[in-house]
C-alpha cells in the first residue's frame, strides 16, 4: 500500500474525525474533518425571521 492509499476503514475513520492508526501522513485530513464536525456544533441557530415565527405560531420574544 502506498502512502496515498486509503482503506475503507481509513476513510471511515477520517470521516468520523478519528486518527488513523499508524498513518501520521493522514493527520492533516483528520484535522480538517474533525474541525468541520466541531465547527457545526458552534454555529449558532440563526434568528427566526418573522414569517417563520408566524408560521409555527410561537410568541415573539418580548421587546426590551
Amino acid at each position: 500500500m502506498t502512502s496515498l492509499d486509503l482503506s475503507t476503514r481509513d476513510v471511515d475513520d477520517i470521516i468520523d474525525g478519528a486518527s488513523v492508526h499508524g498513518r501520521t501522513d493522514l493527520a492533516g485530513v483528520v484535522e480538517l474533518t474533525s474541525f468541520m464536525r466541531a465547527s457545526r456544533e458552534v454555529e449558532p441557530a440563526p434568528p427566526m425571521r418573522a414569517d417563520l415565527v408566524r408560521l409555527i405560531g410561537v410568541e415573539p420574544p418580548p421587546a426590551n
Partner: peptide
Amino acid sequence: PRAFEEIYRLLAGHVA
C-alpha cells in the same frame, strides 16, 4: 409550536 422551536434550536445551526 414550542416543540418545533426546540427542534429549530437544536438543528438550525447544523443546517446553517
